[in-house]
């Protein structure tokens, strides 16, 4: 009897704790980003999984690290990756990625022995047809490196430059400082 009453009182106390939590949340700052007027802070996109991109090369940034081993293409459950080995060493001549088939599972990123692919932070991707979702990632890598060229100094990690390249256009002015 007494334990039953005590349990009920403890239950009531837990209700009050819950109300304090929601009451505090009520006055806490909001997390919503009002998209067309504001964009997400690039820092918050660090863990965002956008469409795939090729990571920058070690010496020559515009050269992919891909060794055309086909592990990603074989591991992909949606068959959205097509890699063709070229004539120049192990480098691929074609690297086509169909984002309309991709389920963003990350099997290719995990399996890649050369760490040549990674998720981009392209949050604001908009296309008007399915064909535009088939991306040539080699050209994409070249474009990105051209737009945001070599590492400014060897001690700055490559990831920072990468993030700057993927930031939306509204944040581009901010990234000039990087």
């Amino acid at each position: 009897m007494i334990t039953a009453i005590w349990d009920q009182l403890k239950g009531l106390y837990s209700l009050i704790v819950g109300m304090i939590v929601t009451g505090r949340y009520f006055f806490a700052p909001q997390k919503t980003v009002h998209y067309p007027r504001k964009v997400v802070d690039p820092e918050d996109l660090a863990a965002y999984r956008g469409p795939l991109e090729l990571t920058r090369g070690k010496d020559d940034e515009s050269r992919t690290r891909c060794i055309s081993c086909q592990m990603c293409a074989k591991g992909c459950p949606g068959n959205c990756i097509k890699v063709v080995k070229g004539t120049e060493g192990k480098l691929p001549s074609t690297w086509v990625y169909d984002f309309s088939l991709c389920c963003l599972c990350g099997a290719c990123v995990e399996v890649c022995p050369a760490s040549a692919i990674d998720f981009s932070h392209r949050l604001y991707l908009v296309v008007t047809s399915r064909e535009e979702l088939v991306m040539d990632l080699l050209a994409d890598l070249k474009e990105r490196v051209a737009a945001n060229p070599l590492k400014p100094a060897p001690d700055v990690p490559a990831a920072a430059g990468q993030k700057a390249a993927d930031a939306p256009s509204a944040g581009a002015a901010k990234n000039g400082e990087v």
């Binding site: 806490a28 909001q30 009002h34």
Partner: peptide, 13 residues
């Protein structure tokens, strides 16, 4: 609005 604020979003906006 109350639901929104409690869930840290703005509600109807």
């Amino acid at each position: 609005k109350g639901a929104g604020f409690i869930q840290r979003r703005p509600g109807p906006y």
